[in-house]
Amino acid sequence: MSQAPTLSAHNAANSARHRNTRIRTIILYAVLILFAGVFLLPLIWMVGTSFKTNDEAYMWPPVIIPSILRWQNYPEAWTYQNTMFAKWTLNTLTITFWVVLGILLSSTLVAYGFARIKFPGRNFWFIFTIATIMLPPQVTMIPLYIFYFRINWLDTFNPLTIPPWFGGGALNIFLLRQFFMSIPTELEDAAYIDGATRFQILWRIFMPLSLPAVLTVAIFSFQSVWNDFYGPLIYLRSIENFTLALGINQFKGLYGDTQIQYMMAVSFLMTIPMIIVFFIAQRFFIRGITLTGVNR
């Protein structure tokens, strides 16, 4: 893997190989830096705008870096009229906690069952589980909405926090099952002889050994529930039950056109936990993506 396959053959045939390699390196860096700028632009623009004064935010031509950093934008945005950012953050954290816990507990149990126990119907249920990846949520959404409406679950967190406890998502089950299947059977055979139950084996042997996979599931679950907009939009009504995403959207509707610096400040506040998690757990992100091969 010393060089790019596409170019190395060409270079090998070239007599002025050394000079060409250098020119190639310079061009590669130029392209990389250009694209890095392009990919970073939205984030830089978000942070930059969040520190501008209102006048500077609406200045033409715009500047990327504000002339002075107006830190007050953050507390001012947080406590802006008709907003409840503290409550919305708490709601989002509450929902996130229950969803992630539910996903972790139920998907590890189910994945262990699929990976390690032989029983009639196992293949049927596994394929059924995996097939739900293809099912658009819109197909089940309307009867569920009517059902939640009848049992007075609308405008509560229940429609968002209860379903994850029942399976925890096909992709997560799949990922954990793959991981569990790679654990050698000798370990649990020894435990069986010592009289351990399956549940003890899952908890004492599989969980510690699969910590990377479990963390990967936790991180992706966190990411998806933290960012979720569609679910809260459908099921939550009153402003005090809003999540951050709904709240920021509400703010946009009321003041987005005139107070963009506050908009960007709260958007960045919502982004910060994701950035922290990403930098702490970067390798789990990468692992999770490559294991399932899925664009989440």
């Binding site: 069952g113 032989k118 119907g121 099912l135 197909v139 009867p143 379903p163 399976g167 399956r198």
Partner: peptide
Amino acid sequence: DGYLFIAPVVLGLLIWTTFPM
């Protein structure tokens, strides 16, 4: 044991997938 372990997903597939479908 198998069905005990996969019970969450079996229930989930019935309550949140099959019936609503």
